[in-house]
Computed example of a mutant assay.
Amino acid sequence: MFQDSPIYDRLVAECGDVPTVVRREAERVSRELEAVMRPMLSSGRERPPSPGNGWQRTALLPGPGPN
């Protein structure tokens, strides 16, 4: 991704390749979710309801959680 970027190389050396780690973890979770959902979907049951109108994903702000 950032092949010739000394700043990125330094961050990777200090913190690890966070984008790659996150991508792998997301792929693993996706595979696990698919494996869990597959029997339910192939058993003839209806698909789980999708979120209706008004449903909105909200992001968590960084830092400590609410007290």
Rank of each mutant, 00 (worst) to 15 (best):
R45T: 07
F2C: 04
Y8M: 03
R57L: 14
S5Q: 06
E27K: 06
D4L: 07
L33Y: 02
E46M: 12
Y8D: 12
R31N: 10
S50Y: 10
M1G: 12
G54L: 00
S43W: 02
R38C: 00
R24D: 09
S30R: 13
R45L: 09
R28A: 08
R28E: 15
G65E: 13
L60A: 08
P19W: 04
A35D: 12
P39A: 10
L33N: 11
E46P: 04
V36K: 14
S50Q: 07
D17V: 06
L11M: 14
P39E: 05
V22A: 09
E25Y: 12
R47A: 09
R24M: 11
T58P: 04
M37R: 13
Q3G: 09
P49G: 09
W55C: 15
L41P: 09
E46G: 15
E32K: 07
S43F: 01
L60T: 08
R38D: 05
A26I: 00
P48C: 04
S30Q: 11
Q56F: 02
L41F: 08
L60Y: 11
S43E: 02
R23N: 02
P49I: 00
G52E: 05
Q56D: 02
A59C: 08
V36T: 11
W55T: 07
W55H: 14
T20E: 08
C15T: 12
R57N: 05
V18P: 04
P51M: 01
G52T: 13
E27Y: 11
C15Q: 15
R38K: 13
E14W: 05
R28K: 14
L60G: 06
N67G: 04
T20A: 11
P66A: 14
L11Y: 04
R31S: 05
E27W: 06
M37A: 13
T20M: 10
Q3K: 11
P62V: 01
E27R: 13
F2H: 06
L61R: 05
N53W: 05
R57W: 12
V22G: 04
P51R: 01
M37W: 03
D4M: 04
R10N: 13
M40T: 13
C15K: 15
S30K: 13
